[in-house]
């Protein structure tokens, strides 16, 4: 799927992927979504090298500055060009926090979402397709759905924080732990949804046909089943990304997340809620960033789904 954004233009015969790309290009929402996602990814990757203020640096004399655009309607607003997005209650720069926070949130969101999808889809497909494994795998899913998340987190932290910290540093170790925890605790809905669809699909005529010509299970799954469950997976991916970004902030609230001075979008949003009447921009900026990211992934997913559906593509 990664080669979609970077198509290899083959000449003859007209490649299937080329027509997918052609269809994808016609989807305005998908192009905008993709473009915005590329923009935001570049911004959080390169931004901190251009806007070099340290996001953790406190500038207590310049605390509670408003964003520069507030000066347009409120000439008395406390603003400064040195901090175009304002500062928080300890004088940390809003823009550099947004950039640094985006880096972490995007990394956590994507990694956790891909892990969730990976586990969820595999379990769902295997359980749906192989009757023998259905029972055990679904009971395992029930077990994971029943586990209380907070004790699980605390156990994971107790057991793994020290070794991970020793090997990957305090932030790197925490990143792995958080991604793993979100992945492990949120794959179950995807698995059950995919399994439900597979159960119905595998009884369809085209699967029967594939089977009867001796196609092996692996190939049936890859060629015939997976493309047909792509749309619920896309929805899970979109919702999963949003959920992962938010869950990360809930984890740091429970004291399991990144060190407290390490910005993320979710944490910025959570910290700002108390003061949302006086400083609405502090909730708006991370909130908009999360929403737009999720929206663009959603449109991207829509475009991909349409492009991959031969029935739509043909028209």
């Amino acid at each position: 799927m990664t080669d979609l954004s970077n198509p290899v233009p083959l000449t003859k015969p007209r490649s299937q992927w080329l027509s997918v790309w052609d269809q994808f290009k016609q989807h305005k929402g998908a192009l905008m979504g993709g473009g915005f996602l590329a923009f935001i990814t570049l911004a959080v990757l390169i931004g901190p090298y251009i806007w070099t203020l340290d996001p953790q640096k406190l500038d207590i004399r310049n605390k509670d500055l408003r964003p520069i655009f507030n000066a347009i309607w409120d000439s008395d607003a406390k603003v400064s060009w040195a901090h175009p997005f304002g500062t928080d209650n300890l004088g940390r720069d809003g823009l550099s926090n947004l950039l640094a926070g985006g880096r972490t949130s995007m990394a956590v969101g994507w990694a956790a979402m891909l892990l969730t999808l990976g586990i969820g889809t595999s379990v769902g497909v295997i359980a749906g397709f192989f009757k023998k494994l259905d029972g055990p795998l679904m009971r395992l899913t029930d077990l994971f759905l029943s586990l209380p998340i907070l004790p699980l987190l605390l156990v994971a932290v107790t057991l793994f924080r020290q070794p991970l910290r020793a090997n990957f540093g305090p932030e790197g170790g925490m990143f792995i732990l958080i991604v793993a925890i979100i992945g492990i605790t949120s794959w179950m809905p995807t698995a059950r949804i995919v399994r439900g669809d597979i159960l119905a699909l595998k009884e369809r005529e085209f699967v029967l046909a594939a089977r009867s010509i001796g196609t092996r299970p692996g190939a049936i799954i890859r060629r015939h089943l997976l493309p047909n469950v792509i749309s619920p997976i896309m929805v899970s991916a979109t919702l999963g990304l949003a959920a992962a970004i938010i869950t990360e902030s809930a984890l740091s609230f429970l004291g399991v997340g990144f060190p407290s001075d390490f910005p993320t979008w979710g944490k910025m949003l959570a910290d700002a809620v108390q003061r949302m009447e006086e400083f609405p921009e502090r909730v708006m900026l991370p909130g908009i960033a999360i929403s737009l990211t999720v929206l663009s992934v959603n449109y991207l997913g829509d475009g991909l789904r349409d492009a991959l559906d031969p029935r739509i593509r043909g028209r």
Binding site: Q56, L58, N89, L90, F253, L254, S260, D261, D271, Q274
Partner: peptide, 13 residues
């Protein structure tokens, strides 16, 4: 320290 908004501000300062 324990998780608490004021304590985290103190830590940062």
């Amino acid at each position: 320290t324990s998780t608490n908004a004021v304590r985290q501000d103190f830590q940062a300062l």
